[in-house]
């Protein structure tokens, strides 16, 4: 575990989480959530849990984003908060 890489990634994780819940445009929010999942996958590979890492990259960053965007296509894209 390289601690400076770990701290940088965890810092970006918190930034992405705060941005994902505070941006009003839902599409941007979902894309930031996808970036959050990808950073999380890198953190896990860096912590030597490679199987969880690539599952998160495929399922968390891939399928979840597709599901969210499919929902957004059937509803509205703006949020009041």
């Amino acid at each position: 575990m390289i601690w400076i890489l770990d701290i940088t990634l965890l810092f970006f994780l918190v930034v992405c989480a705060i941005a994902a819940i505070s941006i009003k445009d839902l599409l941007s929010s979902i894309i930031i959530l996808s970036a959050y999942s990808l950073i999380m996958a890198i953190v896990w590979v860096e912590m030597h849990s490679v199987d969880v890492g690539f599952t998160e990259a495929a399922v968390g960053a891939g399928i979840t984003t597709v599901l969210f965007i499919a929902t957004l296509a059937r509803t509205e894209g703006r949020s009041e908060d």
Partner: peptide
């Protein structure tokens, strides 16, 4: 958050 999709994003986090 009032928006339901925002709530699901929160649950994911």
């Amino acid at each position: 958050k009032k928006n339901l999709i925002k709530k699901v994003i929160g649950a994911n986090i």
